[in-house]
Computed example of a mutant assay.
Amino acid sequence: MTRRAALLAGVAFTLSACSSKFISYDGPQVTRVEVQKANRRMYLMHHDQVLEAFEIQLGFTAEGHKQFEGDGRTPEGRYTIDRRNPNSSFYLSIGIDYPNAADLEFASSRGLKPGGDIFIHGWGDKRRGRGEDWTAGCIAVSNREMKKIYAMVEDGTPIDIFP
């Protein structure tokens, strides 16, 4: 291989590595995620220390706790990060274990389904601005922010979602 070909191959490899949506994180463990719906803020916490803070977008009906499939609300309460989707339509996503037993019981008592598939996810392919809620009940951040969150937050991490 000529020197020029080797240089071009190295540049191509470096650029492809930069475009990866997966990064590593070796800082303090995220022990809890806190979401404040009213302030449209999410915090990645190490005990009482804020490691990162993000502006968020919520379900298109932002007020109130998610109760039924299709209500457009983001859940409120304590849940757990329970899965991840590296092939999400919204760039990357990490799952929230909604509905819990109380959510299931409430929806069932009304003869309705509680809904599900609630995630923290990126914006996907669409260019979105801050300030307007648009998800079906999920928590959205920019793709760049989601890359960081995906690396930092492990499955099993508690998430507290406040009104």
Rank of each mutant, 00 (worst) to 15 (best):
V141S: 03
G10L: 12
R110T: 02
G156A: 10
V141I: 04
A38D: 13
K37E: 01
N143P: 14
M146G: 04
N143L: 01
D26L: 03
G72E: 07
L92W: 01
T31F: 03
I159G: 05
M42G: 00
S89A: 14
I96T: 06
A151M: 06
F119H: 12
A62S: 14
G129T: 07
E34V: 15
R41Q: 14
N39W: 00
R4M: 12
G27N: 06
I149L: 06
D82S: 11
S142N: 00
S142K: 02
G156Q: 06
F54G: 04
P28S: 08
A101C: 01
P158Y: 08
M152W: 09
G137F: 05
A53I: 04
G59F: 09
Q57P: 05
T14Q: 08
T2L: 06
K21G: 08
S109A: 09
E52I: 03
A107C: 09
Q29L: 13
L104R: 14
K148C: 03
M146H: 03
D160W: 06
G27H: 02
I56L: 01
S20I: 03
E52N: 09
I120R: 00
I56H: 00
R32F: 00
F13Q: 10
F68K: 00
Q36L: 03
S108Y: 09
G72W: 02
Y25G: 10
Q29D: 11
I118S: 02
S24R: 13
L15P: 11
M152A: 11
G116E: 06
I96H: 03
R3Y: 11
Q36A: 09
M45H: 02
R144Q: 15
F106A: 13
T157H: 08
P158K: 04
G116M: 10
Q67N: 12
F106L: 15
Q29H: 07
A5I: 13
Y150T: 05
T14L: 15
P28W: 02
D125G: 08
Q57T: 05
A62K: 13
G95M: 06
I81Q: 06
K21R: 15
D155Q: 14
K148M: 13
I120H: 04
D160A: 04
R84T: 00
Y25F: 14
A9S: 12
A136N: 12
K113Y: 04
V153K: 09
S142Y: 00
W123I: 00
T2S: 15
E69A: 15
M45E: 06
R32L: 08
C138Q: 03
I149M: 09
H47S: 10
R130H: 11
R4H: 14
K113F: 05
R127V: 15
A6I: 11
R144W: 14
Q57C: 05
F22A: 08
A5F: 10
E52D: 12
G27P: 12
Q36K: 04
R3L: 14
K148Y: 08
M1W: 07
I118E: 07
G70E: 06
S89F: 07
P158H: 01
I120V: 14
G77C: 01
R144E: 15
R127L: 12
I120G: 10
D97M: 01
A62W: 14
S93E: 04
F162E: 10
F162D: 07
M146A: 07
H46P: 00
K66A: 04
A17T: 15
A53N: 07
E63A: 13
S108Q: 12
H47Y: 10
L44N: 12
S16E: 14
I96W: 03
F90Q: 05
G156L: 02
H46L: 04
A12S: 02
